[in-house]
Amino acid sequence: MAAGGDHGSPDSYRSPLASRYASPEMCFVFSDRYKFRTWRQLWLWLAEAEQTLGLPITDEQIQEMKSNLENIDFKMAAEEEKRLRHDVMAHVHTFGHCCPKAAGIIHLGATSCYVGDNTDLIILRNALDLLLPKLARVISRLADFAKERASLPTLGFTHFQPAQLTTVGKRCCLWIQDLCMDLQNLKRVRDDLRFRGVKGTTGTQASFLQLFEGDDHKVEQLDKMVTEKAGFKRAFIITGQTYTRKVDIEVLSVLASLGASVHKICTDIRLLANLKEMEEPFEKQQIGSSAMPYKRNPMRSERCCSLARHLMTLVMDPLQTASVQWFERTLDDSANRRICLAEAFLTADTILNTLQNISEGLVVYPKVIERRIRQELPFMATENIIMAMVKAGGSRQDCHEKIRVLSQQAASVVKQEGGDNDLIERIQVDAYFSPIHSQLDHLLDPSSFTGRASQQVQRFLEEEVYPLLKPYESVMKVKAELCL
């Protein structure tokens, strides 16, 4: 049975990233139509530049190519590739079939990587351009969430054990800070992308030097003109047959890092959902379990974690691919890159769409948070109580021993009897502590235990987050809708 299948058929496997999760716009960027249309555009740009620099290419040939950029006979191309065992030459023939007058000058002087690699770089750039505003929107939604809850005390956790208090907004800023680093890295790697350009079979530009009869300047002009037509500021000066596969490492490393950030955020949300302090959106008709109707599973956060793990592992592909590119190139890269580049971007696209949807509907339960604080705060307040007693004339050592005994009794009630923490009640009825009984409410005010959390939130948002989001103001209103 021949390899390949009808990918629109229910009898043929289709990647869930495309069929179930990723956005239509990201799927289109990695589609065959987008790819092969870009090949034709690159052939047109090459012909236009070659004509401008004096090669015998007519206006009629150029116009014929322009008129057929979208006229792609995919069936013919597939048949040609089956016959020739070469995808680029299959599309040269297919393009030439609908451009008979231009057929002889299509791909003039070029090698397969002229269309293959340059198209990949265009796709990487455009895919990054799709991700950047999506990530900015996630940051914006979380920034709104953090600002609104900047002063809401909550129990902090280290080692997932109760620690000092923080605020809900401050905790959210930990998430935002990681995503801001990801946004900066995505922008950097996007701006650092260079075009492969017009380089020939081993990167020496020998074929173009021959076409222009040894004119170095025209060869350099050709490279520059096509690079500018493709919208790049610069091209690699040095290439082998391909652009260095280190570029793929750079791009997928940034995406993998984004995956790590999203995994951490969504894990926190899942843990908070278990504590009943916070939940992701839950639709009115949504079913959490087929057997347990009360369940409210954090399905979206779980999906993000599941896909983020996949995204983090994909960076190993370009690392290994770059390491086995012998001399000017081997074909070890080809099949692998067809999979890992598309999957990385479709996965990143999915987790950003999902995280935006989550961040637009996060639900906080202040009463649950308050109750958990009441359970733990008495123990945390013991040092403040000791200091207040010393100020009232008591002995630190005597007070410490009193607190120690009462704390152990209260802990026994919590752990052995399943009761509430009654340390404060014990202190309130103990005559030894009568000098500070009137101060206990103040000493137990949760806001006095959150330090500068709310001020940190305000400063972080104003100095770091809002300036970073400013270039994306025009796209901030787009909502994230999930079908599944």
Rank of each mutant, 00 (worst) to 15 (best):
C113W: 01
T52C: 13
I105F: 11
T244L: 00
D216S: 09
S253V: 12
K101Y: 07
T450C: 12
Q164R: 01
E70D: 13
A163E: 04
I123P: 02
S207L: 02
A163R: 00
G240E: 02
R396H: 03
F460L: 07
V413K: 10
K415H: 04
S438R: 07
S289T: 02
R234D: 09
D349V: 06
G288T: 04
R14M: 15
S12I: 15
E81A: 00
Q63V: 08
A410T: 04
R374H: 06
F145S: 10
D59P: 09
K246M: 03
V368G: 04
L314Q: 11
N353Q: 08
E48Q: 08
R309C: 14
L341V: 12
R196Y: 08
C399T: 13
N384A: 13
K229T: 05
F95V: 07
C113M: 05
S306F: 01
T244Y: 00
Q456C: 08
R404F: 12
S474C: 15
V413M: 14
L346C: 08
I373Y: 04
A410R: 04
R37A: 11
Q356V: 06
Y365M: 08
I403N: 06
K187E: 09
S359E: 06
L69R: 06
A2M: 13
L468P: 04
Q458F: 15
F345C: 12
Q285C: 12
T58F: 10
N353H: 05
D73T: 10
A273P: 03
K187R: 14
Q455T: 13
A235C: 14
L211E: 03
H93R: 12
L121Y: 03
E228C: 10
F36D: 13
L46M: 07
Y21A: 00
L258V: 10
Q184H: 10
P100E: 10
D317N: 10
F282R: 09
R459P: 06
T94E: 12
E343C: 07
E370S: 10
G8K: 15
T58L: 11
L362V: 08
R33W: 08
K391H: 13
K477Q: 14
L55K: 12
G451Y: 01
T350R: 05
M65G: 05
K199L: 03
G4I: 15
W39A: 11
R171T: 01
H442N: 13
Y294H: 01
M312R: 04
Q286T: 02
K134W: 11
V324P: 00
T382W: 01
V413A: 08
K224A: 14
Q397A: 08
E343M: 05
K295V: 01
I62C: 09
Q439M: 11
E425F: 11
L331E: 01
S9F: 15
Q161R: 04
F157A: 10
C483H: 14
A410H: 04
V168Y: 05
L165T: 00
Y21I: 00
Y472V: 11
I369L: 10
H263N: 15
M89W: 01
H91L: 07
A143T: 09
Q356D: 07
A453I: 03
S140D: 09
H437R: 08
A344H: 05
F74C: 14
Q61T: 07
R374W: 06
T313I: 08
E81P: 04
I238N: 06
G259K: 00
H86A: 01
V115S: 08
C180T: 14
G394W: 07
I386R: 01
L155Y: 03
Y243K: 05
V262N: 05
S306V: 02
T111Y: 00
S290E: 02
L252V: 13
G393N: 07
I386Y: 04
F195H: 03
L69E: 07
A150E: 09
F327R: 03
E481C: 14
E473I: 14
P162R: 03
D332E: 00
Q177H: 12
S434Q: 11
R234T: 11
E481K: 14
T244W: 03
D191G: 06
I373H: 05
H86R: 00
G104P: 12
H97I: 14
C180R: 05
V168P: 05
P298D: 03
D59T: 12
I369F: 02
M380Q: 06
S140G: 12
K35R: 13
K246E: 02
Q210Y: 00
E462W: 13
E401F: 10
T313E: 03
N126V: 09
D87I: 00
L142S: 06
G203Y: 00
Y21G: 08
A291Q: 02
F30R: 01
P467T: 12
K415Y: 06
K246P: 02
I139F: 03
D216N: 14
L406T: 07
L362G: 05
T330K: 02
R270F: 04
K402D: 08
E481H: 11
H400W: 00
K134G: 12
E80R: 12
I249C: 06
R329W: 00
I427C: 09
R190P: 02
Q286G: 02
V368Q: 05
M316V: 10
K101R: 12
E463G: 13
N71H: 10
M389A: 07
N421V: 10
G240W: 00
R309Y: 03
Q397P: 05
R296P: 03
W175V: 04
I62H: 05
A3F: 09
G361H: 15
K233W: 08
N185A: 12
L461N: 01
I62P: 02
A150C: 15
R33G: 10
H310V: 09
Q61S: 08
V226C: 09
D216I: 06
I427T: 06
K284D: 12
E70W: 10
V475C: 11
A411P: 03
N357T: 13
R83S: 11
H97E: 09
M65A: 14
A381R: 04
T166R: 00
Y294E: 01
I62K: 06
F74K: 12
Y432A: 13
C304G: 13
Q61I: 10
R83Y: 13
D6R: 07
V364L: 13
S12P: 06
A103H: 07
C399W: 05
R20W: 00
E328L: 02
V363S: 03
